[in-house]
């Protein structure tokens, strides 16, 4: 496995113009191996970003933008907010890449955690604000989304994740949806579902465990 990782990394380093997919196309895909390749690639890019390498920043952006933007957009449900938040996320990456510690998790998890924090802060701030529509009415923006590139996120990985999500119970999925994608606190989730706190916590925990096992995350 180590040899495969090295070989793929070498190929990347030799050809800087190569598009860097999050999931590299490995023949006879073994999920665990693909994941490790991804992790090592992004780790290296983040390290170069920490040294203010703009090309590494561009590569990192290209390798992760559809995941980051997609997650942020799922939380914020507004194209303009989502682009702004995604921009803030990557500016934060640019200035804080050196704070990433590989020992505490993968580069992708670090990035998505940072992005999710910002998205949740934004959705909570917007919910607290009173004039959402009037404030943004004058400046809604940008062309419509490009099609999601299957080259960026291999269809296979998307299917695998979807299958694992489908494997959750409805109650587990609902708790994760409300907390992670709608930015609710677990207390708010329990109020919404009229379930007690302990029940909500155990549904979240069991749902995450099931997902983790299904996806083979260690």
């Amino acid at each position: 496995m180590g040899a495969v990782v090295t070989q793929l990394l070498d190929r990347r380093l030799l050809d800087r113009r190569l598009d860097l997919p999050v999931t590299l196309p490995v023949n006879g895909t073994d999920n665990e191996r693909v994941w490790l390749v991804t992790t090592a690639d992004l780790d290296m890019l983040l390290r170069r970003v920490a040294q203010r390498d703009p090309e590494a920043f561009a590569d990192l952006y290209d390798a992760t933008r559809s995941r980051v933007y997609g997650m942020v957009a799922r939380v914020l449900r507004d194209r303009g907010y989502s682009e702004e938040t995604t921009q803030d996320v990557y500016l934060q990456v640019w200035r804080t890449a050196e704070s990433y510690d590989p020992a505490s998790g993968s580069a992708l998890a670090w990035l998505l955690t940072l992005a999710h924090r910002r998205a949740v802060d934004r959705v909570r701030a917007e919910q607290a604000a009173t004039q959402r529509d009037s404030r943004y009415g004058a400046t809604t923006l940008e062309r419509p989304a490009d099609h999601v590139s299957d080259a960026v996120i291999a269809g296979e990985e998307r299917q695998r994740v979807t299958a694992c999500l489908d494997g959750l119970t409805d109650l587990q999925r609902e708790c994760i949806e409300l907390a992670y994608y709608q930015g609710m606190t677990y207390v708010q989730v329990s109020e919404r579902l009229s379930a007690n706190l302990a029940t909500v916590k155990s549904r979240m925990r069991d749902g995450l465990r099931a997902l983790r096992n299904c996806l083979g995350v260690r």
Partner: peptide, 20 residues
């Protein structure tokens, strides 16, 4: 967090080219 990072593949969506 590692799990949710993998899950992010399910919602992947391209931002506009202007953002880049």
């Amino acid at each position: 967090r590692e799990t949710m990072a993998v899950v992010s593949a399910a919602n992947a969506e391209e931002p506009s080219a202007g953002l880049r």
